[in-house]
Design a protein around this nucleic acid. Sequence first.
DNA 1: GATTTAATATTGTATAGATATTAAATCAGA
DNA 2: TCTGATTTAATATCTATACAATATTAAATC
Lengths: 244, 244
Amino acid sequence: MHDHAPDHRPQTLHARIRVEIEARILSGEWPPGHRIPPETELVATYGCSRMTVNKAMSSLAAEGLILRNRRAGTVVARPRIHSAILNIPDIRAKVEERGATYGYLALTDELRPPCCVHLGSEGHHLGRSRFIRSVHSSDALPVMLEDRHIFLDAVPQAERADFRAEPPGTWLVAHVPWTEAEHRIAAIAAEPLMARTLEIAVGAPCLLVERRTWRGTETVTIVRQVFRGDAFDLIARFGPNSER
Amino acid sequence: MHDHAPDHRPQTLHARIRVEIEARILSGEWPPGHRIPPETELVATYGCSRMTVNKAMSSLAAEGLILRNRRAGTVVARPRIHSAILNIPDIRAKVEERGATYGYLALTDELRPPCCVHLGSEGHHLGRSRFIRSVHSSDALPVMLEDRHIFLDAVPQAERADFRAEPPGTWLVAHVPWTEAEHRIAAIAAEPLMARTLEIAVGAPCLLVERRTWRGTETVTIVRQVFRGDAFDLIARFGPNSER
DNA sequence: GATTTAATATTGTATAGATATTAAATCAGA
DNA sequence: TCTGATTTAATATCTATACAATATTAAATC
């Protein structure tokens, strides 16, 4: 096994500038809304021409990580909702968007010792986590059951957050900057516990969404959501030039 | 209603070059693998500097529409599989990747007159279509039932294609260039016909994927796929800098 | 004080030229 | 025929400069 984190130092100058700024954004050092130094200043710090800085910044802008405006300058973009699939963490917004009343109830909320998870191929060691099991409802009809781990190494503030009123998903999108996510989506039959909680028959079809979210290399959260099959669809749109 | 196709002529030179080349790719005039004139030649045809051409081409490359190599030149990329969700059209590849034997059987194959579809909000008028209902199996176990329309206005060659041996999804990815797609994913209970075809119990959970695919403004295909819930998952990965 | 006008900072676009990097093509030598 | 060195075509990067577009700020005017 010869993989010491393969030293992805970029070869070119504009790429170096790009990743340095990107790193500051992803690490949270430059949070959404933070103003990025103007090109002239970056030219001075990196000792290169403005075209080179411009190339780096343009590419970050093309990725949606920053917003640029003439005279107004450049700021870190706030994390946009990526695709409709990622909308699901914000089930509250989805429910309210339809004019229904959103409801949330935490059933379990506890700290868990470090554990190994086997989602995906190899088991990665993850630190302490806060575990929340909750039910989410639309107009008093329970539509989703959620088991969520939030890993405190990545998000230490989560230890003191109050999840009795605010759902952890909502709290996370407000408090944690840029993330990547991996999803597994499947159709399953409701097990007795799910069926009782979601008020459906045992064996009724449910949509299972398992999501693991990262910031950089650290795992932020792992969620397992079970939706009533008759109440929720996922919508996703892709294309070569989608959502740019 | 004042929307005469809002004249999206680009304001800047590099944008103009970009969309002109993009148009040739999306229209199929330059199919996957086609070699694009080198920068020096484009400089001559557009009468601009090489940096300007380079900016246009770099942005197409960043979007994955073209592949560029020093000395080797620039070619149109072949439509890559976008995300694991879009992998599903290529169920054949998925099955064979696991070492299983892929099987395909067309149950219905007919031409249908122009129709209106109501997927999404408003009903768009779509022209004649070829309709194929088929079963896809893994090691002789039926795992997916597919109803597909291919719209002949967008893909006239589809009228003469032979779908007895080759699944229409496979044929499409090979013959139709860049597309966008919209998906709806849901969990449903197997209806009697599905249950009989997929050899499962009536009411068993199934994953439903409805996909509508476009090229430019024309609808290429609309598919409705029902997967055995116990046999298939979807995997999707997203992030600010995913799949670049 | 409100409104218009001018100055200014910042990004966007474009040019011309220099050099570096890569990989295909060609050719020389064994 | 194979191998290895050399040429060469193409993209990649970088610099320096100029001007354009635009939003903010400051000044001037009513």
